[in-house]
Computed example of a mutant assay.
Amino acid sequence: MKPKISIIVPVYNIEQYLRKCLDSILAQTFTDFEVIIVNDGSTDSSGDICDEYAELDNRVRVIHTYNGGLSSARNVGLKLSRGDFVGFIDGDDWVFKDMYQTLYELCNQTNSDISICTMYREIEGEIVYVDRDNYIKEMDNVEAMRQLFKGNLYRFAVWNKLYTKKCFEHVQFPEGRIHEDLFTTYKVFAKADKVVFTNYAGYIYVKRDSSILTTNYNEKRLDAFLGWNEIISFMNKNYSQLAEYYLSCFAYWVVDNVYYITSQVQKSKDRKKFLSTIQNHVENHYKHIIKSANLDIKYKTHIGLLKYDINLLLLSINFNKILNKRFKQ
């Protein structure tokens, strides 16, 4: 019988986290699901653990593939999924036992194509809890897209959401790139007639020092700006009324990356090379970004310096660092 939900779990060399993840899925109060574990060429014992769980529960299917990366593993899972709904959990994270019950009921009760919850972070084995008042927000397509780029309720991560299968028709994750959620989530939201959000926290994001986005800045992270080129082109064509929001979101992303580069990249040659790449992407959208009412003067100043003079930008950032140190003393 076809399950209601397909839960896709990509796995690569996460043996110390994997059991907790899979145990949390199998303990769900909502039981009508399949788990598709895609072992992405692990070289540790992760593959054996996956097979162990397939023997333990007939809702678990395991696919062993070569190491094609996170996007490839998710695409394999999507292709094999049979559920009416699709969810994603990274194999080093875990979920509270009522997460899928909550998300599934929200979709059904509000006739929504996507339901979203919030998450807590786990750092060094401790969950960082945040007090929140109960809150549910129902949104049409445009409002859901606006909130995606506004970023206060939810962001691009695919794993704290439940989607009707139709949202992924003709949509795949970009293989060979990182920041895969950035490249994908807006396309999925574009296919949703209605979206519902709850500030119930069901997903636990485990912060690992060795994850791709917590290691020192490298050239691969500039993939994000290829994604932003696609996003802005798509949004200009289909959601131009939201320009204030997606261009501001892009500007925040630019400035964040500038700070990562100046604080994490040691070689001056590499710093200027990476900043020059971002400068080229900013050039195409500068005149619209600088007019944005959503951006404060600090961000506009950094964007302006980046566009016109990288050396002056670096001088300004270093000067601010010196001032901040003196004020802290």
Rank of each mutant, 00 (worst) to 15 (best):
K237S: 03
E169A: 04
E230Y: 14
N284H: 15
R221H: 09
Y217W: 13
K267A: 11
V265L: 03
I278R: 10
N257E: 11
V196T: 01
R208P: 08
A190R: 06
I212W: 05
K269Y: 06
L242N: 06
H281D: 14
V171E: 05
S210L: 05
T277F: 06
E230N: 05
S240L: 09
E169F: 01
T277V: 03
T198F: 15
K220A: 04
Q172Y: 11
S240K: 06
E175F: 13
F274Q: 01
E230A: 15
G176I: 11
F250R: 02
N257H: 13
F183H: 03
N238D: 15
F274T: 00
Y260L: 10
D256G: 09
N284F: 04
E230T: 08
F225V: 06
Q172K: 10
Y252Q: 08
E283L: 10
A190L: 07
S210V: 05
K191H: 04
A190K: 04
F234G: 00
F250L: 11
E180Y: 05
R208I: 01
T185F: 02
S276A: 15
T262K: 09
K273D: 05
D256S: 12
Q172D: 10
V171T: 05
N218T: 12
N284Q: 14
Y217E: 02
V255G: 15
F173Y: 04
F183G: 00
Y217H: 08
L213G: 11
F250C: 04
E244Y: 00
D209Q: 08
V188F: 01
N216D: 12
S211L: 11
F225R: 05
K273T: 09
Y252V: 09
E169I: 12
I178R: 03
K207N: 14
K237N: 08
V258C: 12
H170A: 12
A201Y: 00
V171C: 07
V254H: 00
N229Q: 09
V206S: 01
Q264Y: 08
T277S: 06
Y252D: 12
N238Y: 10
H288I: 04
K207T: 07
D181V: 03
I178C: 10
K273R: 04
D181I: 15
S268M: 11
V258F: 10
E175A: 04
Y203D: 14
K269L: 08
H179D: 07
H285F: 14
Q241F: 14
D256N: 10
F250A: 02
S211Q: 11
K187W: 14
R177W: 12
T198A: 15
A190G: 08
N236L: 06
V171W: 10
V254P: 07
S263A: 09
Y239H: 14
D193L: 05
Q172A: 13
E180N: 06
N238I: 02
